[in-house]
Amino acid sequence: MNREKKLKNPIASFILLTNIIFLPLFFLVGATRMLGFPAWVFDVMHCISAWSSTFAFAALFKKIYPGQRFIQFVKDKFKNKLKFSVILTVSMIQAFIFLIIMFLVSNNSEADSIFTISSWGMLIYFFLKNLLSGPLGEEIGWRGFALMELQKKNSPLKTSIIIGFWWGMWHLPIWFTTGYVGIDLIKYILFFMISILSTTIIMTAFYNLNQNLIIPITIHQFFNFFIGIIKGNLIDLIMYSAIFYFAAAVLIIIINPKKVLYGKEDTNSINEKHSMIP
C-alpha cells in the first residue's frame, strides 16, 4: 500500500504554482522584445511561458498522485479513441463562428484583405506556433488535470465556471500589454472573460463526451488560430467571439448532450473512472 502523503488542496496549489512560474517567464518574453532579440527568440520564449501550467502540474504530480508516473498519466489522456462525431461537431461550431466573425469584420473593414497572413508558409508557421504554445502548453494542466480533478466533487458545469475563471485570470498580465486603457481595457477584459468562460463550458461538454485531450486542444487551437488570422480591431474580434461562443455555450447547456454538464449519473461515472486509475 502506497503511504506517500498526498497534497491536501491540489487545485489551489496547481493554480498558485502556475502563476508563480508564469510571471518570470512572461517578463522574459517581454525582455526579448524590448532588447531587440530576433522574432524567433520571442516566439520560443512565448511558447515556453505558455507551458507554465504543465510545468506546475509536473512539479506537483507526485504529491497529487503518489505512486503514479507523470508520462503515463499524460499518455492516458490521449488513449481513448477519438469520436468522429465529436471532432466534426466542435469543428463545425467553431468554423461557423469564424465565418460569421469574418463576415462582420469584412463589412466594417476598408482594408484590401481581412486576413493578417498573406502566404501559405506563414499560415502554416502561425498554425504550428499557436499549437505549440496555448493548446499543447496549457491543456495538460488545465483540462487534463484541473478540470477532471475538480469534477470529482462538483458538477461539470460548476467546474467549468471555476476553471474558466482561474484560467482567464492566469492571463491577467497579458491584458496590460495590449496597450488599452480606461474603458477600452475594461471592455477587452470583460469580453475576454466571457469568451474564455464560454469556451471552457464547450470544452468540458465535448471532452466529457470523448475523454481524449485532443478535444480541448482542438477547441483551443481553433479559437486562437481563427482570431489570429482575421485582420481587425482586437476589441471587436474579442467582442464577437464573446457573443457567439457564449451563445454556443448556452445552447450546449440547454441541450446538455448525454447529461455531460449537470447530470448526476454521468458526473458520477466520470468521477469513478478518474478515481480508479491504477
Rank of each mutant, 00 (worst) to 15 (best):
P66W: 00
S49D: 01
G144L: 05
M203R: 09
L104V: 15
L237A: 08
K75P: 02
W40K: 09
K258Y: 06
P24I: 00
V41A: 13
V181T: 15
N212T: 02
I277F: 00
M203W: 14
I101W: 05
K129A: 11
F78N: 03
K62S: 15
G141I: 06
I229P: 02
F84E: 03
K79D: 13
S118F: 14
I229A: 09
H171K: 05
L16I: 15
F98T: 02
A205F: 00
V105R: 04
S119D: 10
I64A: 05
N154A: 12
L23Y: 14
I196E: 07
T89G: 08
K83Y: 07
H46L: 08
N2A: 00
I140F: 13
I20F: 13
I196N: 15
Y245N: 15
T178Q: 13
G232R: 07
L190Y: 11
T200P: 05
G168W: 13
K63F: 00
F78A: 04
S160W: 08
L261E: 10
N154E: 10
L35F: 10
F222P: 00
Q94L: 15
I254M: 04
N224Q: 09
F206I: 01
A31I: 06
F206S: 02
F73Q: 09
I101Q: 08
K158G: 01
L60D: 04
I229F: 03
L237R: 11
A59G: 06
L261F: 14
Q211A: 10
I255R: 14
V250Y: 07
D43S: 11
I11P: 07
N19V: 00
G182K: 06
G67K: 01
I101R: 01
R3H: 04
L7K: 12
P10S: 11
T204Y: 03
N130K: 13
M34Y: 14
H171F: 07
T199P: 00
F103C: 00
I64F: 02
L150P: 05
I140H: 10
T199M: 15
A205Q: 01
H46M: 05
I71Y: 08
Q68E: 14
K75S: 12
H171I: 06
R3C: 00
N256W: 06
K153E: 14
F27G: 12
V105D: 00
I227R: 09
F206G: 04
M102R: 07
W142L: 05
I48N: 10
M92Y: 02
N212M: 01
F27P: 08
Y245T: 15
W175Y: 13
S113P: 05
Y188Q: 06
N9W: 12
I254G: 02
A247Q: 07
M102V: 01
K63P: 02
F176C: 09
L131H: 06
T159W: 02
Y240K: 01
F126P: 00
F165M: 15
A12M: 11
L88A: 14
K75N: 10
L25N: 02
F57R: 05
I194Y: 04
L172P: 01
T267I: 03
F103A: 10
L185W: 03
A56Y: 01
L104W: 09
P278E: 02
A95G: 06
T178G: 07
I124W: 07
K62Q: 11
S155R: 13
A146T: 02
N256H: 04
M276Y: 08
H171A: 09
Y262L: 03
I255N: 13
F226M: 14
I161R: 03
L190W: 11
K81P: 00
V86C: 02
W120Y: 11
S13R: 04
A249L: 07
E265R: 12
